[in-house]
Design a binder for these strands. Structure first.
Length: 210
DNA sequence: ACATTAAGTGATT
DNA sequence: AATCACTTAATGT
C-alpha cells in the first residue's frame, strides 16, 4: 500500500500525511461491474483511486441511468466531499468500469486533514474543481451535441480511462450510459464502422480513429 | 438441439 | 431519435 501511495500521491502529499493515510486507509480491490456505492447509501468514506477506472452514474425516477463522468487513478470522488459535509446520502452510483484498486479514507479524517495539511486541502479543492469542469462538459455534451457526437465522445472517453482501444461492452450498455435506446446505438455504430472510425465485433468495439 | 442473449434492419411516429 | 416488430448471428447448456 505504501508503494501505491508513493507512486500515485507521493508528489502531492508530505511524508507525514502519507503516514496518516497509510495508518487509517483501507485498501480495496474491486472487479469490473462491481458497485462501489449506490444512490441513497450513506457516505462513510472517500476513495483514493490507485488504478483502474470508476464510472459515476445518475438515475432517473424510472430507474434509467445516465453517465456523468469517469474517475481514474489519482482522482477522488468530489461528490463525497459535498455529501459528507452534511452527513448526507449518496446522490450517485459508482460502478467499477474496469478492475480497480483503491483506498478508503474515513470521512472524519478527511475533515480533520483539511485543517492540518494544506496539501490535502489543495488536493480536495483541485479535484472538486476538475470534477466541476467535467460536469460542465457533460452538460454541454448533453445540451449541444447530437447523439452521434455524444457516442463518439463516449467511446473516446471509454478508451481513454481504460487505456485500451478495444472496448468490451454491449450496445445495450452504451445505450443505458447515454440514456437512449439500443437500436439507436446499433445504427450509429454501424454507420461509424462504415466510415472506418471503428471496428465492430460481438461484445467488442475497436476504436480506430481517436 | 434448443434456449438465450447480442446485434442488424425496415417501417412508423 | 424512439419504438415496434422481426431477423440473424453468436453463445451457453
Amino acid at each position: 500500500m505504501r508503494r501505491q501511495l508513493e507512486e500515485h500521491y507521493g508528489y502531492l502529499f508530505e511524508p507525514q500525511l502519507l503516514d496518516e493515510i497509510e495508518a487509517v486507509g483501507v485498501c480495496k480491490k474491486v472487479l469490473q461491474g462491481q458497485f462501489l456505492i449506490d444512490i441513497g447509501d450513506p457516505i462513510v468514506s472517500m476513495p483514493l483511486i490507485f488504478s483502474g477506472a470508476i464510472k459515476i452514474l445518475r438515475e432517473d425516477s424510472q430507474g434509467d441511468e445516465l453517465l456523468l463522468y469517469f474517475i481514474e487513478k489519482g482522482d477522488t470522488c468530489a461528490m463525497t466531499f459535498s455529501c459528507c459535509m452534511r452527513k448526507g446520502k449518496s446522490e450517485i452510483r459508482a460502478v467499477a468500469e474496469s478492475d480497480a484498486e483503491l483506498c478508503m479514507i474515513p470521512i472524519e479524517k478527511m475533515e480533520e486533514w483539511m485543517g492540518r495539511y494544506k496539501s490535502w486541502q489543495q488536493f480536495i479543492l483541485d479535484s472538486y474543481h476538475s470534477r466541476m469542469q467535467e460536469l460542465m462538459e457533460t452538460i454541454d455534451t448533453l445540451a449541444f451535441m447530437n447523439m452521434d457526437e455524444r457516442l463518439l465522445k463516449h467511446l473516446q472517453d471509454k478508451a481513454m480511462v481504460t487505456h485500451n482501444d478495444f472496448i468490451y461492452t454491449t450496445h445495450q450498455e452504451i445505450a443505458s450510459d447515454l440514456h437512449t435506446s439500443r437500436v439507436v446505438i446499433s445504427r450509429l455504430l454501424k454507420k461509424m464502422e462504415r466510415e472506418g472510425k471503428i471496428n465492430l465485433q460481438r461484445t467488442e468495439i475497436q476504436v480506430v480513429e481517436l
